[in-house]
């Protein structure tokens, strides 16, 4: 759980990046990631420039580098995968110290690491500067189907409620001397999951009753404020536009 503001990834602040509307940041994130992914392997200078763009945006958020660094640990499994690639890939090999490594594997690993790190970094910046409620609104604004947005909104709202319920059930179980040490205890875990499902299902019914009681008739009203000025669009798209230019140049020079 995070503090009083937003979800656990969110870092409270008032920078220009924090203030941008969520749907613009979402568009900017997607454009930036596409530009990075479209940049051809081997054009190291282009990846360097993409990184400069990202670091520039990170600096503008005024979020401490250590915070962003810790959040980027989610990338570790991909890093492990990238490190394995030079050993297992086919093709011509080069000798690096005691290891014989695949040239193609090295290139692929380096590209994967670069693209992955840039993508994760941009996503962490987005998550750290956008409240959960605004992300949901942003998804609605960029035209994600209504039903999907509503499912995500309810998930965001009830994640903590259901997690709280699960924790209370675990405490109650442990208080009666239960600990899951062997396969023989699996049925107990199964019935916990079943009970949690039933409870959540019943809560869903009660929430639906509460919605009906306030006049719900099948469509959620769109209640978030809308900004119509073009200023935020320009601010949000500066960074991804630079990256698109970098990617296009890299493609032409290839």
């Amino acid at each position: 759980m995070g503090g009083a503001h937003g979800h656990s990834l969110h870092f409270h602040g008032h920078s220009v990046v924090h203030r941008l509307p969520a749907h613009l940041k979402l568009v900017a994130l997607v454009v930036y990631v596409i530009a990075v992914v479209a940049t051809p392997a081997g054009q190291w200078w282009a990846f360097g420039l993409h990184a400069v763009v990202l670091v520039g945006v990170m600096a503008a958020t005024r979020i401490p580098a250590g915070y962003i660094g810790r959040r980027m640990l989610i990338e570790v499994p991909f890093v492990v995968f990238a490190l394995i690639m030079p050993f297992v890939a086919q093709g011509p090999r080069v000798q690096v110290g005691p290891f014989s490594l695949s040239e193609a594997g090295l290139l692929a690993a380096a590209t994967l690491l670069l693209k992955g790190t840039l993508g994760v970094g941009a996503s962490v910046v987005f998550a750290a500067t956008t409240e959960a409620a605004d992300i949901v609104t942003g998804l609605r604004r960029v035209g994600l189907p209504r039903q999907l947005v509503e499912i995500i909104a309810f998930m965001v709202r009830y994640l903590d409620v259901v997690t709280g319920q699960l924790i209370r059930m675990k405490v109650a179980r442990a208080s009666r001397g239960f600990s899951a040490r062997s396969v023989r205890q699996w049925p107990v875990l199964g019935s916990t999951a079943g009970a949690l499902f039933i409870r959540s299902y019943e809560r869903g019914e009660r929430v639906h009753l509460a919605m009906l009681s306030r006049g719900y008739s099948g469509a959620m009203p769109d209640l978030a404020p809308v900004s119509t000025s073009t200023g935020p669009w320009v601010a949000a798209l500066v960074a991804p536009a630079v990256s698109v230019v970098i990617a296009v140049t890299a493609l032409v020079l290839r």
Binding site: T137, A210, L223
Partner: peptide, 25 residues
């Protein structure tokens, strides 16, 4: 109707949107 468990009643992302839900409908 105000239901017994407020977690059933408050389902929107923010307090403001939740209070607006009824009148908006």
């Amino acid at each position: 109707i105000v239901f017994q468990d407020p977690d059933d009643q408050l389902f929107m992302p923010t307090v403001r949107q939740d209070v607006a839900f009824g009148p908006a409908n």
